[in-house]
Write a protein that binds this DNA or RNA. Structure first.
Lengths: 265, 265
DNA sequence: CGTTCGATTGAGGAAGATCAATTAATGTGG
DNA sequence: CCACATTAATTGATCTTCCTCAATCGAACG
């Protein structure tokens, strides 16, 4: 039984955030319009669309806290307001894998809708705040307010598309390019959030990254070392979890050079 | 550019089925209740839930026909009434992969919701019939009829979950077990449809299967030969596309024996 | 300051890809 | 209906990639 992923998972810690500004004040409607598809827009859109009567349960989480676990009865969808999260899928025979990484603006919990129980574990990688929406209340609100429904569906659609892109990456790229692609993804997620995209703080161990990317931790380490040697990335800070990307375009070029060499069609 | 996947793709052929029995008569409501989660139930559920005013465009397709292609403007979701279908994802640099296989009762087109354009190609593997639902009309119908909305969400949820299960299989199983898992999946899909699950007619070439499973066509061929040698499967018919599964449990055991050996955690 | 956990790096081996040759199936024109 | 052409599938030999095993190093923490 691989203990890598479950290590450090702490008990659920449901803390209600004390004082917060009113929901509608966080992002202005105008700002929402300007930043298309960015997480600012997505979170703002949520805030704008959520009718006052739909209760939003706020919860602070810390690294290792679980949002939900497989088998738990489904009742809520979660909107990530801040922090970093992973989703772990476990097979009947015990194989497990990190199948998703999620950030501000993402939704969690879709996997629970079909069966009425969550299929995966959702775990915080860092301190953050999540909003819990009762699914039944959300459905009613959606029926009354179609833009909210459209927004919800767009999120589910994105979840499907991202999963497919991950598949493509895992199945068509050699390990080195997979790691580069991972960094590129992370950076673009940061830029969607309006943060600087050239500076990444990995919140996972090499073992977790390797599990996510379908390779061993040694392969992750070697790939990162190679990227650093070739000046495609740079390590910052004391530990080796701060990564700088001087030239994102060079990363793209590297990935493409790898695919041209190894075209598994 | 890998030509494997696009080979044999023919132009869209939109044929309206001539005479059909009225929608509600195909599956009785009682039958729907009895067969939980099977595709009979899912198709029947659709029929029951779709209000009369929601227009359903029927289309007959043949092997190679495209339901939609990447970049096309999104307007419809598709419910598969019969036939076999594949979904192909293509990266910016030309890498492409079969990321999904779909059967009677499945929905296609969710990937188009978020951006307003389809992200993938959906191609028929065999003759079949699909129902096209205008997404805007569907949203309105959902708002008026919440069970329909719940059903739609359940389908999207399943799409997400299935994608994650595929990821897990691709990233944690050696090639032999991946092929066995593929056969098991196909068989269980057949059984959900009420068809016999011990007899599979592969509608894809070894190259397509390999692409779907993240391995070469030679590996697929070798894996199938090994499974046949070990009596876990048997080839029927003239070609080697008819596969019999004498003992599904033995397949499970085989997969598990492989995972115990190669635990990439 | 030692202990522990994570990361790096090297050496060797195994799984699977690639290359190549053969056979089987499918389709085509005569 | 048959000879031929074409595509799909199988099988073997070789080679590359990546995994496994192991040792070392560094950082974090009590």
């Amino acid at each position: 039984m691989p203990a890598v992923l479950s290590a450090g998972v702490r008990a659920v810690q449901a803390v209600e955030a004390p004082a917060h500004p009113p929901l509608r004040a966080v992002v202005s409607a105008g700002e929402v319009q300007r930043i298309a598809f960015g997480s600012q827009a997505r979170v703002g859109e949520m805030l704008r669309l959520l009718p006052g009567q739909l209760p939003v349960g706020r919860r602070l989480v810390h690294a290792g806290d679980t949002i939900y676990i497989a088998g738990e009865v489904f009742a809520h969808l979660y909107v990530l307001n801040s922090g970093y999260f992973k989703v772990i899928n476990t097979a009947a025979d015990g194989r497990e894998q990190v199948v998703g990484l999620h950030f501000r603006g993402d939704w969690l919990g879709f996997d629970g809708i079909a069966t009425g129980r969550y299929i995966c574990d959702a775990v915080a990688l860092d301190t953050g705040e999540i909003w819990a929406l009762r699914y039944d209340a959300l459905l009613l609100a959606c029926a009354a307010h179609l833009p909210l429904l459209a927004s919800l569906h767009a999120e589910m659609s994105r979840a499907i598309t991202r999963g497919r892109d991950s598949m493509l990456s895992r199945c068509t790229l050699p390990v080195g390019a997979r790691v580069a692609d991972f960094l590129r993804d992370w950076a673009s997620a940061l830029s969607r959030q309006g943060q600087r995209a050239d500076q990444i703080t990995l919140r996972m161990t090499r073992a977790e990254i390797g599990n996510y990317l379908g390779m061993t931790l040694e392969s992750v380490s070697r790939a990162l070392s190679t990227l650093a040697r070739d000046k495609l990335i740079r390590f910052a800070g004391k530990g080796r979890r701060e990564i700088l990307i001087p030239d994102p375009g060079a990363l793209d070029a590297f990935i493409q050079s790898q695919t041209a060499a190894t075209s598994r069609s």
